[in-house]
Design a protein around this nucleic acid. Structure first.
Length: 198
DNA sequence: ATAAAGATCATT
DNA sequence: ATGATCTTTATG
């Protein structure tokens, strides 16, 4: 058992800093009594007030974005391209619509269960090396939107095992965001094989 | 009421 | 490169 990340970790105001801090932390789900998870190796920061790439820009409250305005420490899950569920972590205090997209994991726990969910025989990059892949592997769908990350359903841990070297770059798939598409708000663990879009 | 776009992935 | 596939949002 490691240190579960608490609300204070997610309530901090700097979503970019939290995105970096998440690299090397562990993300778990317990669904149908199966614990599955892995090491976070890639994240992207989204800031609802100033960032055109955010669904909540410019502080726009809709049925979908409502959860991003909640207090940090909840999930934001949505359907992307009609096919994939993407998992985000809401950060900052109530009223500030910041969120972090979890883009890739290095699988460590419940690997056989995750392979079955994805209907593949390989682990590593093929299993959780992308934002749509990892939600399928972890069993996350729309029913897991707005879940508290204090819960026993989805949570994060700091096992203090990893001192990652972190690389930053431009976010993926946000060309529509104009100049904000150039913000270096994607972070990943250097040389990790599970990072998406190698 | 309708249309357009989309924080992706697997296959060709 | 392309197709799959469907919710969300604004009416482009």
């Amino acid at each position: 058992m490691g240190n579960k990340l608490n609300k204070a970790f997610f309530k901090r105001s700097d979503v970019v800093q939290i995105s970096k801090d998440l690299i090397g932390k562990y993300l778990y789900t317990k669904i149908n009594d199966n614990i599955t998870g892995g090491i976070i190796v890639e994240t992207e920061a989204y800031c609802g007030s100033i960032d055109r790439a955010s669904h909540a820009y410019p502080d726009k409250i809709t049925p979908r974005t409502k959860v991003m305005f909640a207090e940090g420490g909840r999930s934001y899950v949505y359907l992307c391209y009609g096919i994939h569920f993407l998992f985000n972590i809401v950060t900052n205090v109530k009223g500030k619509a910041d969120a972090i997209l979890i883009r890739a994991l290095e699988p460590t726990k419940g690997i056989e269960v995750m392979k079955k969910r994805r209907n593949i025989s390989k682990s590593g990059y093929a299993l959780t090396g992308g934002p749509g892949k990892l939600t399928q592997a972890l069993g996350i769908d729309l029913s897991h939107n707005s879940v508290s990350l204090d819960s026993d359903l989805i949570w994060l841990e700091d096992l203090n095992k990893i001192k990652p070297e972190i690389v930053s770059g431009i976010r993926i798939g946000v060309d529509y965001a104009g100049k904000d598409a150039l913000l270096p708000w994607r972070f990943y663990m250097k040389d990790n094989a599970c990072v998406s879009r190698k």
